[in-house]
C-alpha cells in the first residue's frame, strides 16, 4: 500500500497510507488530513483539492489532462507549474512515498 505525505502551508507534515487505486484527495479525506476540501467528491467540478506536487515527484505523477488543466485555472491559491488536483492523482505502488504540498486556501 503506497504512502503519501501531505505538507501543510505551515510546514506541518502528515504521512498516511493510501488504498491502492484511491485518489490522493480521497486518501486525505479518509485520514482526516485538513487542507484538502474536495467539495465535489472527486467529480472534477470544484477545484478545491488543489495540491503542489513536490518537484522530485513531478515526472512520476505526470501532467494534468485537458479537463483538469482548465479546472486549475480556477484554483483559489496561486497556480504553479506543479499544481494538480489531487482527485486526479491515483495512488499506486509507483507513487509510494509521494510528497504533496498543500496551498494555504482552497476557496
Amino acid at each position: 500500500m503506497p504512502s503519501v505525505t501531505y505538507i501543510h502551508s505551515d510546514g506541518r507534515a502528515e504521512t498516511v497510507t493510501a488504498g491502492d487505486g484511491d485518489s490522493a484527495m480521497i486518501t486525505a479525506m479518509q485520514n482526516g488530513v485538513d487542507g484538502i476540501v474536495g467539495e465535489c467528491g472527486g467529480g472534477l467540478v470544484c477545484a478545491t483539492c488543489h495540491v503542489y506536487v513536490d518537484d522530485a515527484w513531478m515526472e512520476k505523477v505526470g501532467a494534468a489532462a485537458t479537463d483538469e488543466d482548465e479546472m486549475l485555472e480556477g484554483v483559489a491559491a496561486e497556480r504553479s507549474p506543479n499544481s494538480r488536483l489531487s482527485c486526479q492523482i491515483k495512488m499506486t505502488d509507483a507513487l509510494d512515498g509521494l510528497v504533496l504540498r498543500l496551498p494555504d486556501r482552497q476557496f
Binding site: M29, G32, V37, G38, E39, C40, G41, G43, V45
Partner: peptide, 14 residues
C-alpha cells in the same frame, strides 16, 4: 467533513 455527500449527486451527472 461533508465531501462525498450526494446532495448534488455524484458521478458524470454531478
Amino acid at each position: 467533513k461533508t465531501s462525498g455527500h450526494v446532495g448534488f449527486g455524484s458521478g458524470v451527472h454531478l
